[in-house]
Design a protein around this nucleic acid. Structure first.
Lengths: 344, 344
DNA sequence: CTGAAAGCGCTAACAT
DNA sequence: ATGTTAGCGCTTTCAG
């Protein structure tokens, strides 16, 4: 491959008749080097197209200046926002990103963890896949002293630093909002209750019902995989219930969109017959009709905070041990899909 | 950081009382090493948790086994699909991916190119940002013999290998379909006509009109930036025209969704008053009402082909010089939004 | 089939 | 403020 021979600091040193140490220091902007020599070195480097050999540096320093980003899926607004936030902070701090997504598969998550470990990332930011129950694949990082931060989908009761939203509160508020719209039979469509996010939202849902003297009904809880098909199936299932539920809290906007569309096809009106609240505030929420009420939370901020916290720890500015949980703000966004009472 | 000391091939060699050369060869699965020694080495490596030091290897071999992926945006179905395809092939071939997205900014694209160049990727797969007109930032790769493949948003009439769909044909067919639905005044909402994809679709649109004795009208061409706001603005603009257009071809599903929603708010019916065809077949296309007719094309396949072609070239299996253009299939998907004639 | 040894380009003691 | 030099862990001639 490489045609033009690669320039090294030795070439620069020879050309300027100085030592490689000075060149190395200048390039690292070490204040100990005089302005003059620095200037000469930078100019020559620029002129001859010198570029740092990162392998040589990493081999020497044992640092990669790379952080791993493990995500369960990359196809949602939320995931993209988090990535954007992480990327911004990482770039500013001079860190590279290796992105690995598990497609919601535990096996792939394990393989990704192994790969990132072998690539020797300086730190890891991760959201767990759908059905991850074991965490052995994160042990290797801890053993080598590589810091790990979890976000969104995290290990329950873990010793790790996590960045999350208050899923319990979100579940509670979504449900309470439906109750305030005079809903009496509220269904809940969600996913794997072993995963913290869904477990917490479910607790919020149940507590809101209880606090308003409504009782939970097992027939009104549907656990599926958040696919579009799950939304369609849920709609069929719900619309077949004898006393029709009058409200539904769905933990995903895409599922909610498919759900509403299917209800419409069966001539069930939203919100008149069934009021609906989704989750995530994906773009689709305000593009469908009726507009979908949902929970909004800032992915970008989540990513920024996770990245900043991690990098500060790597640089020794702060210590992860001291931070256990960071909670990001979230809010209920009310649109047409939940407004059963026309007065609000 | 690193607590447990890192194991190197020297440790393995010493433990087994053989030379590092043999260990290195065995780890590379060199057939010259005897099965027996290989077995011993693999077992020990596994047992003590040896992991390759990729920097040392790259420093030595001058290869990174990494390919760069430059994309204009990461927030669309399409972009995600391409990434999925690239990732699949790259992983299978043992290559890593560095992902860089330009947020549609030329300046960021240049910075990304520079970064990937400095990271010494073995090859590059790129889709150009919105307003990229100069291509100097790709020269450096060519000079060092690093192969580059463009996909989707490519340099027009370039000497590079490109993977694309037939945008001209897509534009032609979308427009023809509207004409067959008895549309006489067909508007076109698109983006920067300097970019190949939009230019080609526009040519298809114009040729279809001409071939059916309809004439293009400048007032019916709206060029904007594919944002949601662009869709809303376009709807306002179109709905204010004195003889209302009766058909619209929009080069992006999200814009089309916002467009249709805004029309509805103004009591203009789709498809009865205005028939609409979008582009991309994003999930939103079948979730809104009416379902959006659109152009479907397989991003995953595009990514797979781009990656496979690039990696084959890197490995010397084939030669990029011989391949100029790969065209991926695409098709019109007809849904309710364009069915003005109720008979089809 | 295996071993010895050079060297990839850089950083960081340790000098001066 | 600058220079000398060892060594990070690997691959790859060249020898045997």
């Amino acid at each position: 491959m490489g045609k033009g021979k690669e320039i090294t600091i030795y070439d620069l040193a020879k050309e300027l008749k100085i030592s490689v140490a000075t060149v190395s220091r200048a390039l690292a902007d070490d204040p100990v080097v005089s302005k003059k020599t620095k200037k000469k070195i930078f100019e020559l480097a620029e002129k001859v197209g010198y570029r740092t050999n990162h392998f040589a540096r990493s081999l020497r320093t044992q640092e990669t200046r790379t952080i791993g980003f493990m995500i369960h899926e990359l196809n949602s607004n939320f995931a993209n926002s988090v990535l954007l936030g992480v990327e911004k902070i990482a770039t500013e701090a001079g860190y590279d990103l290796i992105i690995a997504h598990s497609s919601e598969s535990y096996d792939k998550e394990v393989a990704n963890a192994r790969n990132l470990f072998n690539k020797r990332v300086d730190g890891l930011i991760a959201s767990l896949s759908f059905d991850t129950k074991k965490f052995d694949h994160f042990k290797q990082f801890k053993e080598k002293g590589v810091p790990v931060i979890f976000f969104d989908r995290v290990e329950k009761n873990s010793q790790n630093t996590v960045v999350v939203i208050d899923n319990y509160k979100c579940g509670y508020e979504a449900t309470q909002h439906l109750i305030q719209q005079d809903c009496k039979r509220i269904a809940h469509i969600t996913s794997n209750l072993g995963r913290n996010v869904y477990a917490d939202r479910y607790r919020g849902y149940k507590d809101a019902l209880r606090d308003h003297q409504l009782k939970a009904d097992d027939k009104l809880l549907i656990v599926d995989n958040l696919s579009e098909k799950a939304g369609i199936d849920a709609a069929r299932q719900i619309s077949a219930l004898k006393p029709l539920p009058d409200g539904v809290f769905i933990t995903n906007d895409f599922v909610a969109a498919a759900f509403i569309k299917t209800l419409k096809e069966e001539k069930i009106n939203v919100p008149e017959d069934i009021a609906v609240v989704g989750f995530n505030n994906d773009a689709i929420a305000h593009l469908i009709e009726p507009g979908l009420s949902t929970i909004n939370y800032p992915g970008i901020e989540m990513g920024e905070i996770a990245a900043r916290t991690l990098i500060n720890h790597i640089k020794g500015v702060s210590n992860l041990q001291q931070i256990n949980t960071v909670i990001i703000n979230s809010e209920l966004v009310i649109r047409q899909s939940s407004l059963k009472k026309k007065t609000v």
